[in-house]
Structure formats: structure tokens, C-alpha cells
Design a protein around this nucleic acid. Structure first.
Length: 487
RNA sequence: GGCGCUAUGGUGCAACGGUUAGCACGCGGCCCUCUCAAGGCCGAAAUACGGGUUCGAUUCCCGUUAGCGCUACCA
């Protein structure tokens, strides 16, 4: 790999820093993945930090779901989770230091004063220009009766520059940056409140010796504020790398109304984690070749921040599904088996005898037979249920489609009779027995084949019949044919 | 409103001054066939618009438009 990345010589330390105000969504998951790939391919350290400094919106119970989502994705971490809510002393200390060195000031203004009119919504109301400076900055408390917050004193004039690994050189006019809050004012008897995001990220990134900040592009506008903070705190800054956002099909930021947006939802739907990860990695990044199928090892091999694009990407579920079927079909069978076993355990169809020996051999063979037609893991329990248990029912639509001919019951009974005495149970023997019967009865083999499929697996769609028969076994097939003929 | 970012088929990416603009998903057709997939082959489909720079622009510059982001004592 090229040595264009600064700090490549030292130990790489990155972090993923979710906020427990929602579940792990696909955008966050990709950010986590990129951080992880970057750390792992360089033998660096991955830190998980929970940014829970918003006491109101914070939902601690959501943390478990986020961690679970990361684990499912195969993203692990070396340090943490570290909770910002437990490090308030550190931030207060930093705020006081900034106060002392003249980089910050006590602001007594009401919170609303700094907010521009209708800055967040798209209401018709004329949007007013927010204020960026207030009189408190000059040491003239606007309302001394209020408890103060600590704001950063943005230098007047000039610009703040930084280099982004993905977006290149960036420059912002300081006069456009408001004197942002570092430490919230205290409530009730508290002297101070919790730090704001800007404060806690910078203090933590310094404290944790983060070398590369890899995060969503929505933070690019926050970066100059943070660059200013690093300088005021006298700390070297990390390398920034902002990754483009993931959008819904309507190009709007991905949200609940686009359907599943949490990775947990995809796990529950039955996507393979590795397929999901492959898909996610290719959203905003490409190895520069036409390769699509990249397993974890390939990803670790080829990933580079320099190859990340700067344009937002639309989440395309159809392609995700394609990746999933590809993995279902092409994964070495031993890599797929555990996932299928998990699924069967979930649905209560699992039998311990399939874990080893001849049982495992049968299981592998069956899964291998089934997998070209499976789209999601739960298909193993639903659509292919008859392969794993005798408790299955026959799909009425399949019966409707393939049992139209009134000779079917009789044919099925005869087939059972022809199969029962077969001394050898294999593909060709079944094939020969069935075709012979069809010929004698004067019906097309296809008619009998389709009818038989419905009889023995209950579905109109299933693997090739004679392979299916072999896997099911002679006694089961014969019994199911007789049941079907009698029904 | 201000500031910023982005702009190749419907979608994800290639092409980083010279290609018949490539690949993949999706879509349509054909083949294969015992169902349905898979697979194979073929096809429709793009450089947002307008100016420059250049012998030559998808590529560099400017403007327009559009989308997105930030503009909170949210993160």
C-alpha cells in the first residue's frame, strides 16, 4: 500500500462512537466497518466509545442492541465501550483550562438566543440569521442571574484549515463559526451540566490518542470547530477522513420510513453477516476493479480510505439481496453450515445428530442441495421445512398447480410401490423407476415428477426431484407418497 | 436565509486530458430445464445544464441547477 497516509508509521488508533439515541443504523454500521477495516489491516487499535452526553435523548438500553449489531457484523473492538457520561470530570477540567487560557468564556445568554429562526425545519417562515457572537464574550454578562454555560471564543477573522483524507484540503471562515457551547449550564443545584458533543469528542480523541477520525460526512462542518479546539488545548490533531452518507431510494437521508434501517433488522430477516458486510463495504468504496465478491480477507487486503468516494450512496436493497444469494451459493459449505444450524435452532427444527458424524454429512449434503434456491436464512425453516422434519404441510397452491390430473393419486401409489423394493437408493434408480412408471401409464414424466415433488416436500418449488429423494431417504419418500395418495 | 459538500445509465462503482465511456445490481429477450432458482448469451439504459482552458474534455476552472450536510446548552 502507498504511504500517503500521515501517521502511518505510528500505532493506528481509531474509534467508533455511536450515540445511544437510536439503534445501529446502516450508515453507522458502515462507518464502524471502515474504522475496523482500517485498524485491522494496520494492526491498530479499535476503540468503542458511547457518546451519551445528551441526558434527555439518551436511552441506555439501546447500547446493547448497538453492540449486538456490531458483533453480528463481525466488527470487534479492543478498548471500551467507554461511556462519556462517566468522564464528566475530564471535560470540565478541559473547559476550565480553556476558560483560564482565554479560549473560552462564560455565557449567560438564554439557549434560544443563539438559535436561528427555523434553522432545523423547512418551514416557510423566513429563516433568520443566527447570532454567532454575544456580549458575554467581551466579559459583559447578558443576564448575570442565569447560570452560565461555557462557550468557545472563536478567533475573529481568518480561516481554519484542515486536510481530509477523502475530501482533500478544506478551509472555513472563522466568522461563519458561532461561539459554540463546550459545557452546558448547570441545572438545579449542579454548577455545570454535561459537555456538548464538540467538547467531548475532542477531549476524548486527545485523551485516547486517536490518530484517525473516520466518521460520517455530516461532521465535516463540525470539523473546523474541533480543529480550533485542538489548537486551544495545545494538542496535535488527528487525521480526518469523512465518509459519504447513505441515502434512501428517494435520495433522502435514510430513515425509518425507508423500511429497515437497523442492522439488527437485517440480521433478523436472515441475511448473512458476511454478505451484508460485503455489500456495505461497496457503498462508497470500491477496490478499483470489477470485483464484487469480497470476503473479509479480501476486504482487509484491499480496503483503503483513499478509495472512498465523496458522493452519497443510495442503499439498494435489491443488490443486498443479490449479495446474500451469492454468499448462500458460493460460501464454502463449512462456512455456511453454522448459520443454517443457527436458523434451525431458532425455528426449533434442529436435531443434535446433525452436529457431527454421518448426521453432519447428511446435513451438509442437504444444505448444499437447498442453497441455490434459498434467498434468506429463514427459508431453510419455512420453504425447505420438509427436508428437516416430517411435520410439514403441503402448499395448497402447489397442489392446485400440480395435482390437477385425476390420475395422480393412483400414480403416486404406484410410484410408492415401485420405489419401495428398490435395492439401491440413488439418483439413477429413482429416475429410472419413475420414468418407467410414467411410460407404462402413458403420462409425461414431467407430470409425475412435479406431482411427486409436491407429495414429498409439499412445495411447487424445490431442488431437482431425484436429488431430493436421495436426501430424504427411501422410507420417508415411500411413506410420504402413500400419505399424499390417500389425502 | 447563510456556509459547506457532491454531481457518470434507475442503483452501486470504473475510466484520475485521448476508450466504440467499462463492470455489477435491477430490467427485457433467448438458451438450458422436472418446478423454481442458478448459470450462459444478447439487449435497452449515463457523463445534469451553460460557459471557458486545451489540439483534445467524463476528467481542469467558473457559473447555473439539483440533492445532501451543517447552521441546538443534539450527536
Amino acid at each position: 500500500m502507498s504511504g500517503t497516509t500521515p501517521n502511518s508509521g505510528q500505532n493506528v488508533r481509531v474509534r467508533f462512537a455511536p450515540s445511544p439515541t437510536g439503534y445501529l443504523h446502516v450508515g453507522g454500521a458502515r462507518t464502524a466497518l471502515f474504522n475496523w477495516l482500517f485498524a485491522r489491516q494496520r494492526g491498530g487499535t479499535m476503540i468503542l466509545r458511547v457518546e451519551d452526553t445528551d441526558a434527555e435523548r439518551n436511552k441506555p438500553e439501546l447500547v446493547d442492541g448497538i453492540l449486538e449489531g456490531l458483533k453480528w457484523l463481525g466488527v470487534d473492538w479492543d478498548e471500551g465501550p467507554i461511556y462519556q457520561s462517566q468522564r464528566t470530570a475530564l471535560y470540565r477540567e478541559a473547559a476550565e483550562k480553556l476558560l483560564a487560557n482565554g479560549s473560552a468564556f462564560l455565557c449567560y445568554c438564554a439557549a434560544e438566543k443563539y438559535a436561528g429562526g427555523d434553522h432545523a425545519g423547512e418551514g416557510q417562515a423566513e429563516k433568520t440569521r443566527r447570532i454567532t457572537r454575544c456580549e458575554c464574550r467581551e466579559g459583559k454578562p447578558s443576564n448575570p442571574a442565569n447560570k452560565p454555560a461555557i462557550r468557545f471564543k472563536v478567533p475573529p477573522g481568518g480561516t481554519t484549515k484542515f486536510t481530509d483524507l477523502i475530501f482533500g484540503e478544506r478551509e472555513f471562515a472563522n466568522d461563519e463559526i458561532e461561539d459554540f457551547v463546550l459545557l452546558r449550564s448547570g441545572r438545579d443545584s449542579e454548577e455545570w451540566g454535561l459537555p456538548t458533543y464538540q467538547m467531548s469528542v475532542v477531549v476524548d480523541d486527545i485523551d485516547m490518542r486517536i490518530t484517525h477520525v473516520i466518521r460520517g460526512a455530516d461532521h465535516i462542518s463540525n470539523t473546523p470547530k474541533q480543529v480550533l479546539l485542538y489548537a486551544a488545548l495545545g494538542a496535535p490533531r488527528p487525521v480526518f477522513a469523512h465518509v459519504p452518507l447513505i441515502l434512501g431510494p428517494d435520495k433522502a437521508r435514510l430513515s425509518k420510513r425507508h423500511g429497515a434501517t437497523s442492522v439488527t433488522a437485517y440480521a433478523e430477516e436472515g441475511f448473512l453477516p458476511e454478505a451484508f458486510r460485503n455489500f456495505l463495504a461497496l457503498l462508497g468504496w470500491s477496490p478499483g476493479t470489477d470485483e464484487e465478491f469480497l470476503r473479509t480477507k479480501d476486504l482487509l487486503d484491499k480496503f483503503s480510505l483513499e478509495g472512498v468516494s465523496r458522493t452519497n450512496a443510495v442503499f439498494d436493497r435489491a443488490k443486498l439481496e443479490w449479495f446474500n444469494t451469492q454468499y448462500l451459493q458460493k460460501l464454502p459449505i463449512e462456512d455456511l453450515l453454522p448459520q443454517v444450524a443457527l436458523e434451525l435452532k431458532r425455528s426449533g427444527l434442529w436435531k443434535e445428530e446433525w452436529a457431527s458424524g454421518a448426521g453432519r454429512e447428511w446435513f451438509a449434503k442437504t444444505v448444499d442441495l437447498l442453497r441455490p434456491r434459498v434467498r434468506l436464512l429463514p427459508d431453510f425453516s419455512s420453504w425447505s421445512r420438509a427436508f428437516f422434519t416430517d411435520e410439514f404441510s403441503r402448499d395448497p397452491a402447489a397442489i392446485q398447480k400440480f395435482w390437477k390430473d385425476e390420475r395422480i393419486p393412483e400414480l403416486l401409489r404406484k410410484l410408492a410401490g415401485a420405489l419401495e423394493p428398490l435395492p439401491e437408493w440413488n439418483h439413477d434408480a429413482c429416475d429410472h423407476a419413475l420414468r418407467t412408471l410414467a411410460e407404462q401409464a402413458g403420462v409425461k414424466a414431467g407430470l409425475l415428477i412435479n406431482a411427486t415433488r409436491v407429495a414429498i416436500v409439499g412445495q411447487a418449488v424445490a431442488p431437482p426431484l431425484f436429488d431430493t429423494m436421495v436426501v430424504l431417504g427411501q422410507t420417508r419418500v415411500v411413506r410420504r407418497l402413500r400419505e399424499a395418495a390417500a389425502s
